[in-house]
């Protein structure tokens, strides 16, 4: 609000306080007994292909939401790529080596991080974990490598980067297309294949999430360089 005067701020504050009071009153009226879907989820768990209910909800019962959510991630990555000259990170200049100890540590850490990521992906079937956690771990170790001045493999941030961003969203879609082709309902896995399909989708999603995280952090860097070179470009 351009030139929002003091008066408007005061009115705004009043409105927000009123809203808060109104909402508090409403929340106090919320039923104490759980009216949620715990029971329904429990009953459907045997057909879900996984053992952990949150994973089951995310990737099976409400898998459609998760698919679209990967679409949101993709859009955010595309938004960052808009400020890159190409659909990849090759234009991002690597940082100068920062500190040999840190660099060494990051290199040593890398395989462990990949391992942890893989474990998180796998354990999601039984316990808290899954693609998002795995992807975030993987993404952060990549960012860590980049921060310490290590050159990332050229194909990974070049030719393969855009496909990596897309593969999570695409895997869901491919599964949906195949299932639709054999006449099943939208994204309805056959119960006996559900576990495998979820693992497939999660693996792809992990890669996409990691790539997106890297893009979201690393991609901002080009602009800073750009700005240093020409402040009003």
């Amino acid at each position: 609000m351009k030139g929002a005067g003091k008066a408007i701020r005061v009115y705004g504050l009043c409105a927000v306080v009123l809203l808060a009071i109104w909402l508090v009153r409403a929340v106090l009226a919320m039923p104490v007994e759980p009216g949620g879907l715990t029971g329904v989820v429990d009953a459907a768990m045997p057909q879900s292909g996984v053992k952990h209910p949150v994973t089951a909800v995310l990737l099976n019962f409400r898998g459609y939401d998760t698919w679209l959510e990967l679409g949101v991630l993709l859009l955010a990555a595309m938004g960052v790529l808009l400020f890159q000259p190409r659909n990849d990170l090759t234009a991002v200049r690597p940082l100068p080596p920062f500190d040999p100890v840190l660099t060494r540590a990051a290199v040593i850490l890398f395989p462990f991080a990949v391992l942890v990521s893989g474990y998180l992906l796998w354990v999601g079937k039984y316990a808290p974990g899954g693609a998002f956690q795995a992807g975030v771990v993987l993404g952060s170790v990549v960012i860590l490598l980049w921060l310490t001045g290590i050159r990332l493999p050229a194909p990974l941030i070049g030719r393969w980067f855009a496909p990596l961003l897309a593969v999570g969203f695409a895997s869901f879609m491919a599964v949906a297309a195949v299932l639709g082709f054999i006449g099943r309902e939208f994204l309805a896995y056959p119960p006996e294949q559900a576990g495998n399909l979820i693992l497939l989708i999660e693996s792809c999603a992990t890669l996409s999430i990691a790539a997106t995280m890297a893009a979201l952090i690393v991609g901002l860097r080009t602009q800073a360089q750009h700005a240093e070179e020409s402040p009003h470009g």
Binding site: P34, G36, L37, T38, V41, D42, P53, V54, A56, V57, L58, R62, D65, T66, E69, V72, L73, L75, A76, G79, V80, L82, F83, F132, T212, L216, G219, L220, Q223
Partner: peptide, 26 residues
């Protein structure tokens, strides 16, 4: 056991919020 559906919503919500924030940062 806690209701898993809000948990799933929460996870989705966080990812969406993070994406939007990153986009906004860019």
């Amino acid at each position: 056991f806690p209701d898993p559906v809000p948990h799933a919503m929460l996870l989705t919500g966080i990812v969406v919020a993070v994406s939007a924030t990153a986009f906004a940062c860019a």
